[in-house]
Amino acid sequence: MLDTLRTLLLTFLHGFHRRATVQYPEQQPYLPPRYRGRIILSRDPDGGERCVACNLCAVACPVDCISLQKTERDGRWYPDYFRINFSRCIFCGFCEEACPTYAIQLTPDFEMGEYARPNLVYEKEDLLISGTGKYPGYSFHHVAGVPIPGKDRGASEHERAPIDLHSLLP
């Protein structure tokens, strides 16, 4: 009985406490750089698309809201289309964790409300940014052993020049 009254008193006294609510549109909260918001596709330091259409983000996605198709130009893999249905996305960041090339990244932007659901379907043009995002120096193609224009076979990091099969040396 007294507990109940005490509860009521304490509740009443809360009327004189400071309010915890952030008045959002006027008062912008601080979002850390690793905040999981709108997804983007980044580019290599040399300006090429980082995404190599390996499909790992799509398979990691628990709500299956990423879809893409591989295509190839000059030996470099690209997504022909890359589509994210943000009306399904749960911003879990698994795609970013799965990405072997740091192409897909989540950004501190969540203000993407729309009046029509189709507007939440983002294609590659909507996702691709012109910078490297959170990982400035990394270029997958200089680690992987595939040649791309401007980098011959055997010129990646930790690679020897190609074997000369006609050499008789052991």
Binding site: A58, V59, C65, I66, S67, N85, S87, R88, P118, V121
Partner: peptide
């Protein structure tokens, strides 16, 4: 583990 179930057709209809 087929992927893209909720997006593969969404450019036609969401």
């Amino acid at each position: 583990r087929a992927s893209g179930r909720t997006v593969i057709r969404s450019h036609i209809s969401v």
